[in-house]
Simulated scan of single mutants.
Amino acid sequence: MSPSSKAAPAGRPPARRLPQRLGPLPWLAPSVLLILAVVVWPVVEMVRTSLRRIDTTGTDHGPAGLVKYRKLFADPRLAGVLGWTAVWTVVVVALTMLISLALAQLFNQRFPGRRITRWALIAPWAASVLMTAIGFRWMLDQVAGVLNQVLLDLGLITSAQAWTGDAAHARPWLVFVAVFVSLPFTTYTLLAGLQTVPGEVYEAARVDGASRWQTYRRVTLPLLRPAFLVGLVINLINVFNSFPVIWGMTQGGPNADTATTTVFMYMLRGYDVAESSAMSVVNFAAVIVMVLLFLKVSRWNEES
């Protein structure tokens, strides 16, 4: 009997083919490569750039260590930018979630014209955010803006106002526009969550004598928790990194008074590419920490 015809030793499993040993890796490989290409590589390049001496022409003059980070944190405008970014994120996300919750509850009811109002809500979502921001900027313009004209005609103001000319006037309008463009996605996310609540649950609550408020607080809100968390996390990331609304209306001015960290990062690129990259690294780290802390506090993976 030849050696090749001998049976395999007892207790040793037969050799598996290569595709079987790889398991699901061939199916996951395209997604992994895509993540490496569009997420990991840009982050690595961003960190590398922040540690170099690169002038405005793009010429690399060698390593700079942490010089750009020290320069960034020594910038007197940074404290104001960080403070406004925190206020901007909290206020816009809070208003968006509250208004969206009310709209989702409204659209979950049956009333004449419900389909039309649902379609109307998509309009801010369908339009470009930058286009919407520029439209509001022209509407608020001191010379040609329609808002000043209407208020003057109604006698509510005596002279045209520069609504985006200073931070005190511009910031409320920036918040308004940001909430306006954030409502469609959040409302439909919460509406989808509301429509998954079984009607039998409400019927059981009515049989048990629960009031409308008790039913909403103890039945609707707990069952809406997954959809609410999805909308909240996505809004936190989107609003924190929001660029088109602020850039389209004020370009972060005057003197970076209306700039968030994302807009400030873009403003720095005209003076120092490496410092702009350092701001990008800080911004990226802040997003990761913010989301991780939120997920930890909200216990997102636990059943209510």
Rank of each mutant, 00 (worst) to 15 (best):
L292K: 00
S4Y: 07
G252Y: 00
G270E: 15
L25R: 10
F111W: 08
D55G: 13
L152S: 12
E45R: 11
W173Y: 07
P30H: 01
T186C: 15
L51A: 14
A126I: 09
L98K: 02
V197N: 04
D208P: 08
T262N: 13
P19E: 00
A285N: 05
I246M: 07
G135S: 05
L147S: 08
D257Y: 00
L34I: 10
A256W: 03
V297Q: 03
A133H: 05
Y69C: 11
L224N: 11
V201C: 12
V245S: 07
L72N: 13
E275G: 14
P14S: 02
V207E: 05
M267R: 12
V233G: 10
K6L: 12
G65V: 04
P14F: 00
G193E: 05
T59L: 15
S242Q: 14
M265G: 14
Y69A: 14
M290R: 05
R110H: 14
L194K: 05
F111K: 03
L28A: 15
A274M: 12
V197D: 03
T56H: 04
R269F: 12
R137M: 03
V87T: 07
L140Y: 10
V291W: 01
S2N: 13
I99W: 03
N301T: 10
D257T: 13
T132E: 06
A178C: 09
S280R: 03
F185V: 10
R12Y: 07
R171G: 04
V239D: 06
L156I: 08
L221N: 02
R48N: 12
N235A: 14
P9T: 06
N241G: 07
M131E: 01
L151P: 11
K71N: 15
R21E: 14
T261F: 08
A133E: 08
G231A: 11
W163Q: 02
N148R: 06
A94M: 11
L268Q: 13
V291G: 06
V39F: 07
I134C: 03
Y216P: 04
M131I: 10
P63Y: 00
Q149H: 10
M97I: 08
A133F: 01
Q195E: 13
L156V: 11
I237Y: 01
V87C: 04
I54F: 02
S276C: 14
L82T: 02
E200C: 06
L236P: 11
V38H: 00
F176S: 04
V291I: 12
V40L: 10
V297Y: 03
I54L: 07
K296A: 12
R48I: 03
A144I: 08
G113V: 09
V91Y: 02
Q251V: 00
R171M: 14
L191R: 04
T262P: 12
Y271T: 15
R52P: 07
A37M: 15
P244S: 04
R218V: 00
S182V: 10
G248E: 09
A127W: 09
V38P: 09
A256Y: 09
D141Q: 05
R114F: 07
V207M: 14
G253N: 07
Y216G: 02
P76D: 04
R48K: 10
I288A: 14
Q20L: 11
A120G: 11
A210T: 03
L183W: 12
A160S: 15
P198R: 06
V150Q: 02
A167H: 06
L72D: 15
L190Y: 03
A227E: 13
R70Q: 14
A7Y: 06
A94E: 07
L229D: 05
W247C: 03
R118V: 06
